[in-house]
Structures are given as structure tokens and as C-alpha cells.
Design a protein around this nucleic acid. Sequence first.
DNA 1: ACTCTACCGGAGGCGCACCTCCGCTTCAAC
DNA 2: GTTGAAGCGGAGGTGCGCCTCCGGTAGAGT
Lengths: 196, 196
Amino acid sequence: MTTQSFPVTELVAARRPTRKDAARNYDALLAAAREAFAEHGAEASLEDIARRAGVGIGTLYRNFPTRRQLFETVYADEVNALCQLAVEVAEREPWEALTVWLDRFAGYMVTKRAVREALDGESEVFVACRESMYAGGGPLFARAQEAGVVRGDMEFGDLLRMVAGIMATAFEDEAQRDRVLGIALDGVRMRKDPGA
Amino acid sequence: MTTQSFPVTELVAARRPTRKDAARNYDALLAAAREAFAEHGAEASLEDIARRAGVGIGTLYRNFPTRRQLFETVYADEVNALCQLAVEVAEREPWEALTVWLDRFAGYMVTKRAVREALDGESEVFVACRESMYAGGGPLFARAQEAGVVRGDMEFGDLLRMVAGIMATAFEDEAQRDRVLGIALDGVRMRKDPGA
DNA sequence: ACTCTACCGGAGGCGCACCTCCGCTTCAAC
DNA sequence: GTTGAAGCGGAGGTGCGCCTCCGGTAGAGT
């Protein structure tokens, strides 16, 4: 198993308690929060999350004194997983590696959008997430650009936002979403024709 | 002034009261709701909306017995304006007409996304909005396709969702948003080169 | 000017989510 | 097995948004 360290990697593990029951509760809370955020967005009730996790509301507040800290932990966890994936796909063809990774990125964004929006863009954790995302996915993008399969007048951040935006929208069905994403990625791909 | 009737056009005017003070309050409520939804999304407080409009909460409930009705009216109003614009730009060059219209569409979507999401896709008003949108913007799209400036394997609905998704995302600045939108629209545009 | 009716506003009851606080429980070190 | 510290859970206070209801007000018809 390939495991590499990114800015978020430490942050994720840092707060997890050591005592056995406490660690179990912590994990249950994180899982419940992921589920609740996916279902109800950032407005999910904290009491509902505690209930799902099978712990008291007090336990939730001990582990995550603020709503924000819960958001941050859930989000950082996902970003870390994405970074690990980037390492795994790094050996494939440039364009394929990039799209495989984007595919997974897109999947996360569907449910994590609400959490991201609720996070202040300047918080320590959010900055670490951004840096990790660039450290993980950036090389895939750069390689594709160097290989001449991605247009030069675009930045990695542009691509992330484009995909995130499209994934956050409601479509009639999966086919339509894929079609639209494909068309947009056609704009990303280097054109074979020279002029206008 | 070009004024044309679309499915939403009647719905918009239907509920407006006739008495002078009532009509004034109705308009103030709509304006306040637009503002509040843009600022806080679909979770905006109804009491805050009433306060902004300078009317009592009772007046809000008399005009819009349910939160949904307020959403619907605000949204239908915007759609109607978009339809009127489509009529106005119909004489320009196909690609230009389409992009001018999309530009305005994009502007609306930034603030109206929350409202749209809160609306049930099957409600009478929402269906009328969808039909109006297609009746207004569809011809611009069809004309651009016939003129050979838009790829053939795309539907109007695909384009709307693509633009809506991109506009709903947070960007670093306006320049980045424009750049990303431009790249995505490059995917929409007919390619000059023949093969892959 | 008068009337009568439609409309106005906001006080207040209700319910839900947030968060604190503390007596009880469980872990783990010895 | 004992013990003390770390952890647990949920009762309950607080605040806020939703919605109803009705005494007062202001427009429209005569």
C-alpha cells in the first residue's frame, strides 16, 4: 500500500483520542457526520449526528467543540483520501491519470460541496486542504500539460472549480452529467487545429 | 418595448393584489425576498424578509401562505425577465446572441441557485418556468446549431446546466470565472478540425 | 364625507436546535 | 482488585424562526 504524507495527513490523525471507547465514539461520530452532511447538507442537526452515532450530544461536543471543527475534520479526511489516490494513478497515461483522478474528485464533490462552502477559505485546515489538493492532483495536471494534451492557458485551480461546479448541479440523469462533463473537458483538451 | 407572453408570464402577474397599499407591500416583499435569498440562500428567515420589506410578518403570510409560494414567485419573475431578453437579442449573430443571453442567465443563476434547488421539480410553476426557459432560449441555441457554430451532439438543457453549475461555484475572482466559463464554452463550440 | 371591507402589523405560542453542566460509568495503570 | 482520571450521556436553559390570530387602520365605492 502506498501511503504518502500531505499537509492534511497529520491534521486528520491529530485529534483522535487514544482511549479505546473514546476512539470508537470519535470514529462513529465522523462516519455519522459524513452521512448526515451528504443527506442534509451543512445544516444537518448536530443532535441528529450524535443520535446516528449512538452517542450522547455531550460526547459530540467534547470531540468537536464547534460545528466548524466537525466540518474541518470530515473534509480533511476526504482530501487525504484523494491525495492518496493521486499517488496511485501517477503511473498511467497523462490524460487518463488526470481523468481518473478527476472522476473520483467529482464523486467526492457531490456530497462535500455543502461542507466546503461552510468552511472559511482562510482557516488553517482549509489552507492545508488546498495545499494538499494541489500537491496531490497538481502534478497530474502539469504532466498532462507538458505532454501537450491539456491547453496551456489554464490553471489547475480552474479545472478543479470547473469540475466541482458541474458536479454540484442537478442533472436529469447520470448520462446527462457525463455528457456535459465530457463536453467541458473537450474545452480543456488541447485543440489539434491551429487557428480560430 | 418588446413584450411577449410565455407560460410564466401570467403566473407572475396573477397573484398581485389590486389595492394600492397591498400592491406596494407585495412588490416590497418580492424585492426583499430576492435580496435575502441572494444573501442567505433558501434558509433566509421569513421574518427578516418582512423586516427588510418594512411590513409585518402577517402581511408576508397573507401574500405567500407558504415559503414555497414565495420561492416560486421570485423565481418565475426572473425567468420571465430572461425570456424577454431572449426576444430582444434574437436579431444578432447566432453565437453572439447565445452568449449574450447565457451571460445574463449566468448572472441570475448565481443568486437564484438556492431558490431553484428548494423548488420541487414537478410543481406547476417550476414546469412553467422550464417551458418558458426553453421557449425563450431554445431558439437561440437551435439557430447557433444550425449555423454550425455549436456542436450537434448537445442539447439545450445540457448547456443550461453546464453554465448554471459553473456559475454556482465560488471562484477566486471574476477573471477566473470568466476564464473557466470560456474554456467550457470552447467545448460547446463546433471544432474546426475534422478528427480526434 | 361616510361606510364597510379588505388589509395591516406584531404579540405570543410552539417547536426545534444549540450548547452547558454534572452525576455516573468505564478504562487502564499499578 | 483497586483507584483515580478520562470519558459518557442527556436533562434542561436559551434563543430563534415559524405561524396564527385579532384589534386597529386605511383604501375604494357611493
